[in-house]
Design a protein around this nucleic acid. Structure first.
Lengths: 225, 225
DNA sequence: ATTAAAATATGACAATTATCATAAAAATGC
DNA sequence: GCATTTTTATGATAATTGTCATATTTTAAT
C-alpha cells in the first residue's frame, strides 16, 4: 500500500492541504483498484460514501436525458478528485462517471474526508476553492451553451481538449473520444458534429486521420470562438 | 445599526452558522444601503472586497455576450448572499449583478468574512454546502440548456419563477421580468420568447394580462418539461 | 395631455440544427 | 479470413430558432 505522499492526486487536488499525519490516515483506509474502459465509477442516483482519487486515465461525467442521449458535463483526469460535491451535500449523485480509458484510482471513505473538515481549515478552504472554480467554469459553460452556435461550441471543445489533455507532436488530440462522446460534450446531434468536423477539415482548420483529430490551424480555430 | 440577529439573510444563508459574537462583529462592520431598480450591485471584471447580503428585492446575475445580449445565469432574492465565489477565489467577478426591483442590502467587508473561515468550521461547511448546491444546479441548467428545446426551457423557466418567487392569488407570477430579461434567462431571442408566450396563451397554458404572466394550467406546463 | 421613446407583438424569411435514410469504413466475434 | 456489428460519414428533408421589418401597445418625459 503506497504512502500517498508522492501521489499525483496529492499534488493537484485539495488533498495538498493535508499534513503528513493526515496523509497516513488516508493511506491506511484507502482502497486502490483499476477500472476498465467503459465501466462506471459512479452512477446517477447512487449514494456516495467516499471520494475517488484519479491516479491515471480519463473519465467522463455525464447525465442521461429523456431521449436516451447523454450529455457530458465535464471530463476528469489524473490528479483530480471525484464525488466531493455529493459527499458534502449528502445527496445521491446527479451524474454518472464512466471511464474513457483504463484507470487507476483510489477510494477514500467518507468518514475520513469529513473528519478533515473539522480539524484542518486549510483543507476546507482548498475544497471550497476547487468547488468555486468548478462553479465559475459551469457558469461559463452555461453561457456558452446558451449563446454560441454549435460550430463555435465545437471549436471551443476541441481547444479545451487540446488544452486539458495535450496533443502529440503532430498536434493530434491526445484524448480519443468517439464522435458520440464529442457530440455529447458539444451538446449536439452526432450527425451535426460529424458534419461540422468534415467542414472544419475542408476549411483547413483540422485534419482527420482515422480517429485522430489534428489541430492544423489553432489560431483560426481560436479566432472562431 | 441593526444587530443582524433577526435578519432574514442570517436565517437563510451560510451566515446562520455564525455565533452571537461573530454576528456582532458583522453588525459593527457592515454598511447598509439601498439599490434602485436598474442599478448594478456588482460589475463583471470588478474586484470584490466583500459580500452583499440581500435583505429585500431581487437582482439578476448575468453575463454580457459579444453580440451585446446578456445571459441571465440566475436570480437572487432576499435572504441570499452575493459575491461569495469571487471572494473565495480571489478573482475578479465574472458576472454582473443588477437590481430588478429596489433593494435593501448590506455590505460586509472581505476581511471579516475571511476570518470566520479560520475560526468557525461550521461556517466554512455552510458556505461549502451552498456553493455545492449552486454547482449542482448549474450542472442541471447546463444539461437543460443543451438538451431541451426553447419551448421546454420557457416552460421550465416559468415554473422556476413561480417556485422561487411565488404567485399571487390568481396564479400571476410575482416577479416582473421584461420580455428581454425572460429571454435572457431562457437563453433565446426576444422575439422567439414573445412568440412562444403567445403560443402558450393560445394553448391555454398561460394568460397574459399586461405585463403579468398567469400560470393557467400548471399541470400541463409541468408535463411539458 | 401630447409627443416621443421604449417595450411588446406578429409576419416573413433565412439560417441553423435535428432527424431519417443510407452508404462506407472500421472494429469485433467466431 | 469472413461475416456481423458498430462507428463514421454524407445526403435529403423537416423542424426549430434567429433575424429583420413593421405594427401596436405601453411607458416616460415635457
Amino acid at each position: 500500500m503506497g504512502s500517498c505522499e508522492q501521489c499525483i492526486v496529492r499534488q493537484f487536488s485539495s488533498l495538498k492541504a493535508l499534513n503528513k499525519e493526515e496523509l497516513i490516515k488516508v493511506a491506511n483506509c484507502k482502497t486502490s483498484y483499476r477500472v476498465k474502459k467503459g465501466e462506471n465509477l459512479f452512477e446517477e442516483g447512487q449514494h456516495v460514501n467516499g471520494v475517488i482519487c484519479i491516479k491515471s486515465g480519463i473519465c467522463k461525467i455525464a447525465k442521461l436525458t429523456d431521449n436516451g442521449k447523454s450529455h457530458i458535463v465535464k471530463l476528469i483526469t489524473k490528479g483530480e478528485l471525484l464525488g466531493q460535491r455529493s459527499l458534502i451535500n449528502d445527496e445521491s449523485l446527479n451524474l454518472t462517471a464512466t471511464a474513457l480509458e483504463d484507470m487507476e484510482v483510489c477510494f477514500v471513505p467518507k468518514a475520513e474526508i469529513m473528519s478533515f473538515f473539522n480539524t484542518n481549515p486549510n483543507f476546507s478552504m482548498e475544497v471550497l476553492r476547487t468547488v468555486c472554480e468548478d462553479l465559475k467554469e459551469a457558469d461559463n459553460d452555461l453561457v456558452n451553451m446558451a449563446q454560441k452556435s454549435v460550430r463555435e461550441r465545437l471549436a471551443i471543445t476541441l481547444l479545451y481538449l487540446a488544452d486539458k489533455f495535450g496533443t502529440d507532436e503532430d498536434q493530434a488530440l491526445h484524448v480519443q473520444l468517439s464522435r458520440e462522446e464529442l457530440s455529447g460534450l458539444v451538446g449536439t446531434a452526432v450527425e451535426s458534429c460529424i458534419r461540422l468536423l468534415s467542414e472544419f477539415k475542408k476549411d483547413g482548420l483540422i485534419d482527420l486521420v482515422g480517429k485522430r483529430i489534428i489541430l492544423k490551424n489553432e489560431r483560426d480555430l481560436r479566432r472562431m470562438t
